[in-house]
Nucleic acid binder design. Structure first.
Lengths: 365, 365
DNA sequence: ATGAAAGCGCTAACAC
DNA sequence: GTGTTAGCGCTTTCAT
């Protein structure tokens, strides 16, 4: 097994050629080889301390020759932080999450942090496990993404997490979720769900649509409630009322979009536009409409929410609400790491805007 | 404000109420509270050592009361490994990578490992930085994904990385890349690029296509060469020769697919099918064909490679080659972590198969 | 079954 | 400038 004895370093005999005797060199090895003390090596490493040029050169040389790299754990043990941010999602596979992940990763590396990826598959049990693990890791920030259930149990659990993380010096960041309340040590980076839905609905109404179906309301899910709220407000502002029978409950998935649309068509309800809860839902909707011989946008207009890449790939390309995914991720990291400098911006809401493509027609039909 | 007072531990005075005096409790705190020694706490923690039931109970209770969590770094410092695998990609945003990432993450957590996400944006400079960082972190495995450039410089660099990682006990894993050669300490998990392209091309030929354009060859990229190789072999097996002018160089992107297809159409070359280098390329191709009024699959058949979700969302849905993304990720982790038990399976090739959808017609037109 | 003591690799006070 | 001395929080002999 790997044994090393400071100055007199003897290598273990490689018993077999397989399973190499792992044994990275340490500051002491470098020190010995350069004929200096460990502290000096450490100073060269840190760079933040005066060291004679000649000494530094010798140390650097020794490091190179020994192929030395610091042990991040030993370093983290002394200092406070692990220089790590954790990113917690249901599923990396979703484009929505993936784009936020990119923002997180970019900002993290820009800030000299590593990024840990954790998935929960929507299992509350696993969220708990992930948070505990991140506490062990002393991550600088734990970023949790995605809509939240609007029940007390959820609130309580997250509040507990926020405090637990705070106790070890980590910051909880909620992305795309509502705040937990005053006094809870958490950063919230949200986007304007309500405004996006309002703008989109207004666009549809302005284009002459009066009977708009909303496909994929998810009762109790924060993002869904907010979107419905904007949808409703846009109607009311113009003296209209969304028809209750045209608001269909479902989930955010392509298959629901397909199925729900078929049911909507079968129900014989009258409508000239479909507001899908997400772009994925809209993708299913488009397929169902095509199979039913309904033309988009001539017979029915379709819009989505999220502006993920698939919106460009479907036919016709999808009018949708853009969410600044990467900006959300970047902001989350930035605010969490600089919370001491930015104590007043621990709850921000980024803007959304509609993107008009082929699945709707311009106003004035 | 988390306050804890060990036996004689005095706390720094919390100067202001802001920026809380981070101070997680340690084994010693727990030990003191439970009236035992630190070693005993450690034994309870590890679970792998006999401890009197009553003692264990007291310790557990103390841990709960103090909201204790081990410090992963301190633990990693003593032991050998960090219980972490690193996943290195160009860009998380690509569905291809995202699905492999899911496999990696799943297997990693199944094996009790954390997953670090690192992106390189295709910058070799950053790959180097990432590898160094992972060496510092003492990651169990460093998984690098994506096609490789077939030049000596690349080979040498990766070989160097393999050895450097090996020296600190980490395993380099190449996913979707060719092996580096015998004696290099690396695990390779590849998929059958050549076979998939062969099968797909055979399918097209069997459907009556004789002039098939290949759109998006990337000279020097391993995956591309392999696909071209299968494409060619399928032709030759039937006594055909792919027309050189129908093989177009490009890159793996949607925009290239669009642009390349327009150029192909403008060139006046004759063809009845397009084999796109990837599904993303195919998405661009379909758009260009639609704009040009070319019907798919009636006028021209289109096929892709990868079987990412977009293949289902385009119209018509795309016939493509399935790659076992998640299985690649899972296998990468599994082989890397168990390389001592599985010394003979450090180079595996997973199978691919074609998936026929609407963008081609069944054989026998 | 439990405690005492010795590190793991590194950094940070203190000396000189 | 550079060396010496203490730990950081945990695990792990070695005693008892």
């Amino acid at each position: 097994m790997a044994k090393r004895t400071a100055t007199v370093k003897q290598h273990s005999v490689p018993s077999a050629d397989t399973s190499p005797a792992k044994d990275a060199s340490t500051v002491r090895d470098v020190a010995a080889r350069a004929g200096v003390s460990a502290s000096t090596v450490s100073r060269v490493l840190g760079g933040t301390y005066p060291v004679a040029a000649s000494t530094r050169a010798r140390v650097l040389k020794a490091m190179r020759e020994l192929d030395y790299v610091v042990n991040a754990h030993a370093r983290a043990l002394g200092g406070a932080t692990n220089k790590t941010v954790a990113f917690v999602v249901d599923d990396v596979t979703g484009p929505f999450y993936a784009h936020i992940a990119r923002g997180v990763e970019e900002q993290a590396s820009a800030e000299g942090r590593l990024c840990m990826l954790c998935t929960t598959h929507g299992d509350p049990q696993r969220v708990l496990a992930v948070v505990e693990t991140m506490r062990e890791q002393r991550a600088d920030a734990v970023i949790v993404v995605g809509g939240a259930w609007e029940d007390k149990a959820y609130q309580d659990r997250m509040t507990h997490f926020a405090h637990a993380l705070d106790r070890v010096g980590s910051r909880l960041v909620l992305v795309g979720r509502p705040p937990l309340g005053p006094g809870v040590p958490a950063t919230v980076v949200d986007y304007d769900n309500e405004g996006g839905a309002f703008a989109m609905t207004s666009h549809l109404i302005a284009s002459g649509h009066q009977r708009i179906a909303y496909l994929g309301r998810v009762p109790g899910l924060s993002t869904s409630s907010q979107r419905i709220s904007g949808f409703t407000r846009a109607h009311e502002l113009l003296g209209l009322t969304p028809h209750p029978k045209l608001i269909l409950d479902g989930v955010y998935s392509r298959s629901y979009g397909y199925q729900g649309t078929r049911e909507l068509l079968a129900s014989g309800a009258e409508f000239t536009a479909i507001f899908a809860g997400t772009d994925m839902v809209a993708a299913g909707t488009l397929q169902a409409l095509r199979e039913a011989g309904v033309r988009v946008p001539d017979d029915v207009a379709v819009v989505g929410y999220d502006d993920i890449p698939v919106a460009m790939d479907v036919f016709p390309s999808l009018t949708t609400v853009n969410i600044p995914h990467e900006e959300l991720g970047r902001t989350a990291v930035r605010l969490a790491l600089h919370r001491d400098e930015l104590p007043d911006s621990q709850h921000v809401v980024l803007g959304t805007h509609i993107v008009v493509r082929g699945s709707t027609r311009r106003p004035g039909r």
